[in-house]
Simulated scan of single mutants.
Amino acid sequence: MAQNDHLAVPTGDSQYVTVFNDPVNFNAKHPLNNAWTLWFDNPGKKANDKNWMQSLKELITFDTVEDFWGVYNNVVKTDQLAIGSNYHLFKQGVKPMWEDEANAHGGKWSIQLPRNKTIADIDRIWLYTMLACIGEAFESESEICGAVVSVRKAFFRIALWTRSSDKESVAMAIGRTLKQSAGLHGELEFTPHHETKTSQKWVV
């Protein structure tokens, strides 16, 4: 749970004013169930493990609805990012890499979106993906580790990372929810982070 010390609690005769009532002078915040960290990287044309790690930057951690919107409204929008860039939104304490303990046995739902057809929509799709994560739209919320949007020359890629990769019914439910929440059309494919000969790929 998010810590309540981030809530401004009015005293005396004052009343709660939320961001929905007054976007500037609000005095109460809505806590999220988890804190989330936004990461960014742009390793350049010749990406490898070393320069990727060096380019990965932890931007900010937030745990209220209002702080999320403050972050979203003040970072570069997805359709304006340089080719090769990635945003990663992960639960606090989970690094956006396969080696992290939370991701080690997991996988991801992903979809590639042609850049020329989706550039007008990609920021909305990424926003709805983030909202589904922080708003816990998924039935198996504990399975969600984070989400990534990747900007490439010919396409954008949206990926949702999960904690496990061996629970088909759980994974399929997550994939269907992501597809609906983000307004995605086309096939999403689930792949384990570490594929083996027995690994299965699922599609929604």
Score class of each variant (00 low, 15 high):
Met1His: 15
Leu7Asn: 15
Ala8Glu: 11
Ala8Met: 08
Val9Trp: 11
Gly12Ile: 11
Asp13Gly: 01
Ser14Phe: 03
Ser14Trp: 06
Tyr16Arg: 15
Val17Asp: 11
Val17Thr: 14
Thr18Asp: 10
Val19His: 14
Val19Tyr: 13
Asn21Met: 15
Asp22Ser: 07
Asn27Arg: 04
Asn27Pro: 09
Lys29His: 06
Lys29Asp: 13
His30Ile: 15
Pro31Val: 11
Pro31Cys: 08
Ala35Ile: 02
Ala35Val: 04
Thr37Pro: 10
Phe40Asn: 09
Lys45Pro: 07
Lys46Asp: 14
Lys50Met: 02
Lys50Tyr: 08
Asn51His: 04
Met53Thr: 13
Gln54Asp: 09
Glu58Asp: 12
Ile60Ser: 07
Thr61Cys: 04
Asp63Ile: 13
Asp67Leu: 01
Asp67Gly: 02
Phe68Ala: 06
Phe68Leu: 07
Gly70Pro: 10
Gly70Asp: 14
Asn73Asp: 14
Asn73Pro: 06
Gln80Phe: 03
Leu81Glu: 05
Asn86Thr: 08
Asn86His: 10
Tyr87Pro: 05
Phe90Trp: 12
Phe90His: 01
Lys91Met: 05
Lys91Trp: 09
Val94Cys: 06
Val94Met: 02
Lys95Thr: 10
Pro96His: 03
Met97Pro: 01
Asp100Phe: 07
Asp100Ala: 00
Ile111Lys: 05
Ile111Glu: 10
Leu113Gly: 05
Lys117Arg: 10
Lys117Cys: 02
Thr118Gly: 00
Ala120Gln: 14
Ala120Thr: 12
Asp121Trp: 05
Ile122Phe: 06
Asp123Tyr: 09
Asp123Leu: 02
Asp123Ala: 07
Trp126Ile: 00
Trp126Ser: 00
Leu127Asp: 03
Tyr128Gly: 00
Thr129Asn: 15
Cys133Gly: 01
Gly135Ser: 07
Phe138Pro: 00
Ser142Arg: 10
Ile144Pro: 09
Cys145Ile: 09
Ser150His: 01
Arg152Lys: 14
Ala154Lys: 15
Phe156Ala: 12
Phe156Lys: 01
Ile158Ala: 09
Val170His: 07
Ala171Glu: 11
Ala171Cys: 14
Ala173Arg: 13
Ile174Asn: 02
Ile174Arg: 00
Gly175Leu: 14
Gly175Lys: 01
Lys179Ile: 12
Gln180Tyr: 02
Leu184Gln: 00
Gly186Ala: 07
Gly186Met: 04
Leu188Pro: 06
Glu189Ile: 15
Thr191Val: 08
Pro192Asp: 09
His194Pro: 00
Glu195Gln: 11
Glu195Thr: 07
Thr198Met: 07
Gln200Trp: 04
Trp202His: 05
Trp202Glu: 05
